[in-house]
Design a protein around this nucleic acid. Structure first.
Lengths: 219, 219
DNA sequence: CATTATTTTTAGATTTGTCTAAATTTAATT
DNA sequence: AATTAAATTTAGACAAATCTAAAAATAATG
């Protein structure tokens, strides 16, 4: 019947990593994403393949089947709706909701999630600016660019971030780089995308890695 | 560190069954409550005893230590707060929220549950009429009596139920025996407490077993 | 109080998900 | 193309939670 907590996490990890080249996700990439061993991943890939949730060939990596994709997308939907609830209704902060939503997304009930969606007013984006898939798995694309891509003189509004690790979000919060803030790029190093920018009359430096995870809506 | 989902369910089951005689809960009673085998229960009792969450002597049953009681009461608190949320905020019905709350109660976050409590307006009772313990484990007692104890001519308001199995709640819903309704007892069989009562100008029969699980506030 | 009957525990096996270490396959390099 | 390096899989083991069947302890009964 239903999948285990662990199986669900594997599907979600594969979906997250599917943005890469050919759509084939490597064993090692999944192991890194889930902080587990490659051997464990191999075992699980066989299992998910037997259930026709992924296409898997030995040594060649895995990709989601349409059913696997459906399930993984539903998990993303649940995760992001819960994040909206935690921030919007309970007043929790941007950087503390991810881990809790990571647990809440596994609660099994279609009725629950549709009621929650309605209660929240059918939001299209979560507090990090990521789009929330609807019940059919479709979602709205947002016109956004990673901060690391902006060139000197360009400016825009902070929409959200791609990464959702607590430590990273906390770091941004401390710097004041929260959604809605206006930024203007002063310099963008051609080699490593180190960024210098203006945020509310203060100047700020960011590494290319950090800047690559901050999404901006150009103005 | 934290307990597993399963360990938590054992503690909750022992708390629920502790109302009985000497406070000692038998292996078989726990097995029945959790729909598992007596052998499995024995294994788990050893484990919980090693962690000092219960006092356990072979063949003599188990009882919660103060720490075990604290954890179990917190679970009850979470369960009932989530039930309030599901009914009050999401508009779900009385009889469909138990199973979902059974999952939600295991979400690990003190911040979350305190924020939820505040969001809900610090409710003192859940939709079934059961008291919600505060963060210190204390709860308000309600002046309520099982319907099976009412004698001919006595009347009152349906407060809630003790049992929280979906099938049972659905049954009551169909009969219209939901919280807030006024009832008046016509007869109460001395032997098996079979009840005949008036509910909104309709007459109704209930078995003693069912009536024993419906709580009434006398008027 | 001796003997059933019931309850509880032990023994051994199973499932799920994990690990380390060794073997195998694929990729990279000279 | 041969050899080294990296990635992946297999083999074997382990911990958590469960089960059935058999043994042991407690309770009930004549």
């Amino acid at each position: 019947m239903g999948l285990s907590y662990v199986e669900e996490n594997y599907l979600k990890a594969i979906l997250k990593l599917s943005g890469t080249p050919n759509g084939q996700v490597s064993t090692n990439a999944i192991a890194a994403q889930l902080s587990t061993s490659a051997a464990s991943v191999t075992d699980m890939l066989k299992k998910l393949s037997d259930k026709d949730l992924i296409a898997y060939k030995r040594y060649k990596g895995a990709s989601l089947t349409s059913e696997g994709q459906r399930i993984a997308t539903t998990l993303v939907r649940k995760h992001r709706l819960w994040e909206v609830f935690l921030v919007q209704s309970l007043g929790m902060t941007w950087d503390e909701v991810h881990d809790i939503a990571e647990e809440l997304e596994h609660i099994q009930s279609d009725r629950l999630i549709e009621s929650l969606d309605e209660f929240l007013g059918f939001p299209k984006f979560d507090p990090h600016g990521d789009p929330i898939p609807n019940a059919e798995g479709k979602y709205t694309l947002r016109t956004q660019v990673p901060l690391s891509k902006l060139t000197e003189g360009q400016q825009g509004i902070v929409i959200g971030v791609r990464e959702d690790e607590s430590a990273f979000l906390k770091h941004l919060n401390e710097k004041g780089l929260t959604p809605g803030k206006h930024v203007k790029v002063l310099t963008n190093d051609a080699y490593d995308n180190t960024i210098r920018l203006v945020l509310e009359d203060k100047e700020l430096n960011l590494s290319g890695k950090v800047a690559g995870n901050i999404m901006i809506k150009l103005t």
